[in-house]
């Protein structure tokens, strides 16, 4: 109920943006910039690039305000644009050139340091190693599977919304998520009960 009210509110704000209300655009930006940047960051794994791409997403939202019609949920429309931007970026091969190193250190490098540090530092190091592993595993997923998992896990979008955002059928989303989680289980399940 709450989600419906929120999405209606978003659509209303966007209709006001269409009429030239800059304040409504600022409200939409304040509400959605975090989820969009986080999604792009997890897709690309480079902070500066994620913010640059997020600017492109909101610019596209602003540019298409005149033709906006509230036919779909605002967040679905927004994430369709964000997915397009991210997938195009990855397809163009800019991804490999710009990817951040995992805070400048490899997981193996961090693990080697663990033995020589105090317990609290050790815990922190283990956490860092695990996080690096999660990031690397997600990064190795095919781009569309990655986008589907990120929208499913972090944006809590259902199959229909993910399908609309990725412009594919719901059964295709089921298949994408099934394969993605299968890979993630194979590589990350050993973390159960750790940390």
């Amino acid at each position: 109920m709450m989600a419906v009210a929120t999405s209606e509110h978003d659509a209303e704000l966007m209709l006001r943006v269409r009429e030239g209300d800059a304040q409504s655009f600022a409200l939409l930006l304040a509400k959605h910039r975090g989820p969009v940047i986080h999604f792009l960051y997890r897709m690309i794994q480079n902070r500066a690039v994620a913010e640059e791409l997020a600017q492109e997403v909101f610019l596209r939202v602003y540019r298409s305000r005149a033709g906006y019609e509230p036919t779909a949920k605002f967040t679905t429309w927004l994430f369709r644009i964000a997915s397009h931007v991210a997938l195009n970026y990855i397809r163009d091969g800019k991804h490999e050139r710009n990817q951040e190193s995992l805070d400048g250190e490899s997981a193996e490098g961090i693990a080697r340091q663990v033995a020589s540090r105090a317990p609290t530092v050790e815990q922190e190091m283990v956490r860092e190693v695990q996080l690096a592993e999660v990031r690397r595993t997600v990064e190795l997923l095919p781009a569309k599977q990655r986008a589907a998992v990120l929208m499913h896990k972090y944006q809590e979008m259902d199959y229909a919304q993910i399908a609309a955002a990725l412009e594919c059928s719901e059964s295709a989303v089921k298949s994408l998520l099934f394969r993605a989680y299968e890979t993630l289980r194979a590589k990350l399940a050993h973390m159960a009960g750790r940390g």
Partner: peptide, 12 residues
Amino acid sequence: EQRAVWQALESW
């Protein structure tokens, strides 16, 4: 295993 994946993703 799926819960372990879920937890791992939440740590990010």
